[in-house]
Computed example of a mutant assay.
Amino acid sequence: MGDDDAVGDDDVERRLRAVHAALVTEGAIDPLAMDDAETRLWIDCELASLVENRFFERVDPAARGAELRAVWAPRATRDGLQLGSPHAGARYVAPYWLVREGRRVGTIALSTGGLGGALLEVSSLYVLPAHRGRGVASAALRRADGAARAHGAPGLRVRTPWAWQRAVRFYLGLRMWVAGWADAIELTWRRGLPAHDIAIGDAEATFGVVVDGRKEHLLRASREGERLGWVESPRMEAHRGERSDVARLAPATFAVALAARGFPLVRSEDRWRARRDPSCAGEPEGLAHRIELFEAVDRSFGFDVRTPRIPGLLYRAYEDIA
């Protein structure tokens, strides 16, 4: 089975709506009302997230909404992003407040199954500055994943831009797996995937999975100047032979973790030339190509890009990337 398993659209929507209802009943989330002022604040949280991740300026939307809209909105949405009413897409995603101990502490949006498939997709995850550092986001994700599985969904996924490094590291720290990077880094918890274990030092790194409480070694990486050393264990080769989800997602997950620590991603000139081939999907060279493109696009819009420097990448301007 793939991400969505063999279920129809109506069944997926029924399951995901049940997930929403369960989380509301638990007191983990609160539906966003149609009230104009409440909706405005929710949109201001979206804008504050953009400002924080694109310019590294923390602006409290509850206290400085007018400043966000007047000063930051024109800069933060130069890429054409439209911050319209969160109610407009209710057929595909539903907006909520994050709730902790009865208080609204941030925002979250959950897919309804209209487009996103059987996995519960989480977006617009934002914690108000006054409630940071208390595990709000991680607790919300774990509760959402638990509710999804309890109602028959295979798990959840989130997407984050590569340049949003705090988010990338946060999701990897929760042992999420990287499922792709077509438009952004997509991460997932999914039924059947074990927890992974990543250890990264200055010159070497390892990737494995935790099975029955023990780490099963799969991949080893090393810095070789501007080249990436990459060795697969016999167990990883066995996973590839089985065409398991671990075999498909382990290289991608390890590659993103390495990139976040400034490791090289290109193993050889031949592999770099094949970076656009379908066979390179999920491989380090494919990520290197996307990182160069992602960062070029962000810089073209004047966003402040603060990412690890990947040895060997040229970091060309957008118009120069073939």
Rank of each mutant, 00 (worst) to 15 (best):
H239Y: 15
A153S: 09
R14T: 15
L119G: 03
V168W: 05
V7D: 00
A88T: 10
L98P: 03
A90G: 09
A250E: 00
A62M: 12
P284E: 13
F303Q: 13
H87K: 09
E101F: 05
A73P: 12
I310E: 04
R235W: 14
R103T: 06
Y171S: 05
V210M: 02
R91H: 14
G106W: 07
T25L: 10
D145P: 00
T253S: 04
R273D: 13
V71T: 10
A63K: 08
G282A: 14
L128Y: 10
E292R: 05
E13G: 08
R299G: 01
V93A: 05
V211H: 01
G229H: 14
G8E: 02
P129V: 11
L23I: 07
I29N: 01
T253L: 07
R15C: 09
D3M: 13
L115E: 05
R267P: 02
A150N: 07
R190P: 01
R100T: 06
A73K: 07
G89N: 10
E283M: 14
E292Q: 10
I108S: 01
L32S: 05
L218H: 06
R103S: 01
A322Y: 11
L41A: 09
A33P: 00
T253E: 01
R157Q: 13
S222E: 15
A21G: 06
G302A: 10
D36S: 08
S268E: 05
E38N: 08
G113R: 11
A147P: 00
G8C: 08
V122Q: 06
P61T: 13
R69W: 15
R235G: 09
E295G: 04
P264V: 06
D270N: 11
D245N: 12
I29G: 01
L119D: 04
L23Y: 08
R17F: 14
R175T: 09
P95H: 02
A73M: 10
P129E: 07
L32Q: 04
L172K: 02
I108R: 02
R316W: 15
F254V: 01
A94C: 06
S138Y: 01
L83K: 00
A167R: 07
A6R: 11
G225T: 11
E216V: 15
V93K: 07
D35Y: 06
G113E: 13
L265C: 09
V122K: 13
R91D: 15
R299F: 12
G27F: 13
D298G: 00
L174Q: 03
G208D: 06
E292K: 05
P251E: 03
G229P: 03
M1F: 15
H131N: 02
F254K: 01
D145C: 06
H87Q: 10
A296C: 08
S49C: 14
D79I: 02
T206F: 00
S222H: 10
T39Y: 02
R54E: 14
A139S: 03
V51W: 13
L265H: 01
R273G: 14
G302M: 14
A260W: 08
E237Q: 15
G173I: 04
L187T: 09
R290Q: 12
A6N: 05
P95W: 04
L125I: 13
N53I: 02
